[in-house]
Design a protein around this nucleic acid. Structure first.
Lengths: 173, 173
DNA sequence: CGATATTTGATATGGTCCATAACAATTATC
DNA sequence: GATAATTGTTATGGACCATATCAAATATCG
C-alpha cells in the first residue's frame, strides 16, 4: 500500500522553526486525516515492514548484510548439504534471481557452491568459515540491537503474540 | 527478507503423487528446517504482508484497484482540496512516482486534478462521481471479503491487537 | 541400450516499484 | 525587482520480481 522508504526530510531549517506557525485564527493546513486508512491491515502492515527492514539494515550496516542475505546464511547454516533450488524455493526466491544473490555471497567468501558428486547438475551450498563467523556476529547484532528494540517497544509477551499472528497470516491466509 | 510472490507449483503431477515417498529407512530429502528464521520478525512480517496484498488484489480484481490506488482514493476522499504533494507525502510516495499513479486514476475517471486558484502551481485532487462510487464498492469488498477473512482467522480482539502493535512499530520504531 | 523428458544452474529480458537530478512555471522572500 | 523556494513533471538508474530459454546432467521408459 504505497509507503516508500524516503526520509521525511523536514523542510524546516534549524534556525527558523517558527515559520510554519500561523498568527491567529487561520486554517492550519498541516496534518492530513488518515481516516479509514489506519484501520487497513495492509497499509499498517506495509509501513511496519518497511520500518523493520530499515532498522535491520542499520543494525547490519557494519556487516553489510541485507535481510535476504541474512536469511540465506541462516537457512544454509541450518540445512547444510542442500542445493540452490531447495534453499531458494524455501525462501520464496525464484532460481534465476537466486543466482546473483549467491554470486554476491560467494564473492565475499561467505558461502560456497560445491558440485554434488551424486548429481553433478546441482550445487551444494555451505557456509565458509568466514561465513559462519560473520553469521554469528550478525545474529548477535540482530539479537542485541534489533529484536531487543522490539521487546522494549512491545514487551516480550506481545512480541511473541505478534509473531504468532503474523505466522498464522503467512501460512493460512 | 526474500519471499517472492510465486506460487509453489508443486511438481507433483495429479497421477503419481506417491513418487516422492521413500520405501523404508531412507533419508527423506523434503522439508527444510526454517530454524531461527521463523523467529525473525522481519521474515514473518514480509511473508504476511505479501499474503495480505495478494488477497487484497484478488478481492479487488473486479474493480482493478491496487493497494496503492485504493489508499490514494481513500485519502483523497477524506481530505478533499489537498494537492498532489500533500497526498503523496502522507502516503510515503515520492512526488515523481505519484504522477503516473494519478495519470492512471485520472484516465479511468476516478479522480481529477484541478488547478488551484490560490496557487496556480498546485493541483487540487478530488474524486469524481465515478471515483466515489467505485471507492464505495471497494470499501464493501474489502470489508466483506478481505477484513472479514482476517477476523475469521484471528478473531476480532486479536485482529485489533495486531493492528495496534503494527501501528506502534510503524510509528515508534 | 537409446530416444525422450525432466531437472539444475544460468542467462537474457521485461515489468514494477523506488529514488535522485533536473526543468519550467509559479510563488515567496528580501 | 532579483533571488530563492515550491509544484508538478520528465528522465533516468537501481533493486526486486517474474518468465522464457538454454546447456549439461540425470531420469524415464520403450
Amino acid at each position: 500500500m504505497t509507503v516508500s522508504k524516503t526520509a521525511e526530510k523536514s523542510s524546516e531549517k534549524p534556525g527558523d522553526a517558527a515559520k510554519g506557525r500561523k498568527d491567529a485564527a487561520e486554517a492550519q493546513p498541516e496534518a492530513l486525516q488518515l481516516g479509514e486508512l489506519s484501520e487497513q491491515l495492509g497499509y499498517v502492515l506495509k509501513r511496519a515492514q518497511l520500518k523493520v527492514f530499515e532498522n535491520f539494515l542499520r543494525c547490519m550496516a557494519s556487516l553489510q548484510l541485507t535481510p535476504a542475505q541474512f536469511s540465506v546464511l541462516l537457512l544454509v547454516e541450518k540445512n547444510p548439504g542442500r542445493n540452490q533450488t531447495e534453499i531458494a524455493s524455501t525462501l520464496g526466491i525464484l532460481r534465476p534471481n537466486f543466482v546473483a544473490l549467491l554470486d554476491n555471497l560467494e564473492s565475499r567468501d561467505l558461502c560456497a557452491r560445491i558440485r554434488s558428486t551424486n548429481d553433478r547438475r546441482s550445487h551444494i551450498l555451505v557456509l565458509t568459515d568466514k561465513g559462519k563467523a560473520v553469521l554469528a556476529r550478525a545474529k548477535k547484532l540482530v539479537a542485541t540491537k534489533h529484536e531487543a528494540r522490539l521487546n522494549e517497544l512491545l514487551g516480550q509477551a506481545n512480541r511473541e503474540a505478534l509473531l504468532g499472528m503474523l505466522a498464522k497470516i503467512a501460512n493460512e491466509f
